[in-house]
Design a protein around this nucleic acid. Structure first.
Lengths: 102, 102
DNA sequence: TAAATAGTTTGACTTTTTTCAAACTATTTA
DNA sequence: TAAATAGTTTGAAAAAAGTCAAACTATTTA
């Protein structure tokens, strides 16, 4: 199983984070994980084809927003809240507060 | 002279704001205007062809981020800070704090 | 009125992004 | 080992976004 790359949060430009969060589907994923805690990919409350979801998870992971870990056949995603809060203070909270259901 | 459309801030989805801010050129424009106050389009510290700049101003205006007013032959742009702060509390500040020079 | 100034619009081109069927990989269960 | 489960990768298509030359509009100045 290939190791998943998680960028060092210090090397993530804010533009990448804003871009990742600017897609409504991805913002919804982030909201769910923020509210409900760690979820596996197939259980994050969004009903769309697997490759599309997989793509969005990749964008979020590469922007430093989520962590993905393997757990059996599943992949569990969680918010990198602490990293985000230390690198971009207040950003995550303000986006979550501003966001509304899909 | 045609009236410029400025959306009601309550009708702007956070996705649009995040998308507008996710472009490095636009983020730089916002930083300059945030730091230096109202500027005319040609004096916002970015050196690129006029149509490209004009396009970015339009995106920022339509996302509710800047206000544009005509002043003679110039157009003066300013941040809609109050609107943004009331609609998306903390968002603008956290993005500005997170952003670094282009 | 003519020229200069400041910025927009149009249109073409390129790049990036989104989407998803089909095929694939890795892990667990029967 | 075979089948089921969970998700990824590939590759193709469509949509969206960024860039900018050329032509245009509106306002001010000579």
């Amino acid at each position: 199983m290939r190791e998943l790359h998680h960028p060092n949060i210090q090397e993530v430009p804010v533009s990448n984070v804003l871009h990742a969060l600017s897609d409504p589907v991805r913002l919804q994923i982030v909201r769910i994980v923020a509210e409900m805690g760690e979820r596996c990919c197939g259980n994050c409350g969004i009903n769309m084809p697997k490759p599309t979801l997989s793509h969005h998870f990749k964008v979020l992971r590469e922007a430093g927003i989520i962590n993905v870990r393997q757990e059996g056949t599943q992949r569990c995603i969680s918010l990198r809240s602490e990293d985000l809060n230390s690198r971009f203070p207040g950003l995550l909270d303000s986006v979550l507060q501003a966001s509304e259901p899909l």
